[in-house]
């Protein structure tokens, strides 16, 4: 369960300061697929990053499965991200020179797992995402849709409880986009919490519920 308590965040100082999040309170049950929508600059990514332990709020705190992220130190926070969270980014952020399996296994490598275990787990994930024949292919040779599936495999490989996806379809055509949304839907059906930021209303409709932000505030929550 994710609990967001009175979270606010501003960037910059003085007159030029921008309030990205304004006193957000939200509870997300485990196993739900949540879409966060809103106009550009409404604070979607900021919210996701704070939940994803990549950024600290100015006030308030986020609790994930009872753990207050504010009080964790940098290294513990990194370990927490490694164990509990999986990220999918709009621009994938894969290493183009590494193979699919090397990219997918990265979180396991960081977790200190042995090579055999890493490869076994990574292969299962690669197969699950239908990239079986690309296992040893360098990522730079893949299409955008394939890359995003590699990124999803990487996010899932450590068996995290929560998947955070910021505009996962933003760089994809609609066919590939739909496929990714389908995969995320499936992940949520399998019991993981999925938080997805998107502009695309169609994509948002696939989620269990939709949160709409405006100027850093939640203006609507729809089932």
């Amino acid at each position: 369960m994710i609990k967001i308590n009175d979270v606010s965040k501003a960037f910059g100082q003085g007159a030029g300061s921008v309030v990205a999040l304004d006193n957000i309170n939200l509870t997300i049950e485990s196993g739900k697929f949540v879409a966060i929508t809103g106009k550009s600059g409404s604070g979607k990514s900021t919210l996701l990053n704070i939940v994803g332990a990549l950024e600290k709020p100015d006030t308030g705190y986020v609790e994930i499965d009872g753990e207050n992220l504010n009080i964790l130190k940098a290294d513990s926070l990194a370990n927490f991200r490694n164990k509990k969270l999986g990220y999918v980014f709009q621009s994938f952020y894969l290493e183009p020179e590494f193979s699919v399996i090397e990219n997918v296994a990265l979180p396991l490598l960081i977790a200190g797992e042995k090579k055999a275990d890493r490869e076994e787990k990574a292969k299962i994930m690669i197969n699950k995402l239908g990239l079986f024949d690309k296992t040893s292919e360098k990522v730079k040779n893949l299409s955008g849709g394939q890359k995003q599936r590699v990124a999803i495999a990487r996010a899932l490989v450590n068996d995290p409880d929560i998947i955070l996806a910021d505009e996962p379809t933003g760089n994809l055509d609609s066919a590939n986009g739909n496929e990714v949304i389908e995969i995320l839907r499936q992940i949520a059906n399998d019991g993981k919490t999925v938080l997805m930021v998107t502009h695309n209303l169609q994509d948002a409709n696939v989620a269990d519920y939709k949160i709409t932000l405006k100027d850093g505030k939640i203006i609507e929550t729809t089932e």
Partner: peptide, 13 residues
């Protein structure tokens, strides 16, 4: 970006 994502997915600074 990759190096930064490494940190995002759990590598220590």
């Amino acid at each position: 970006n990759f190096l930064t994502v490494m940190r995002a997915v759990g590598a220590h600074d």
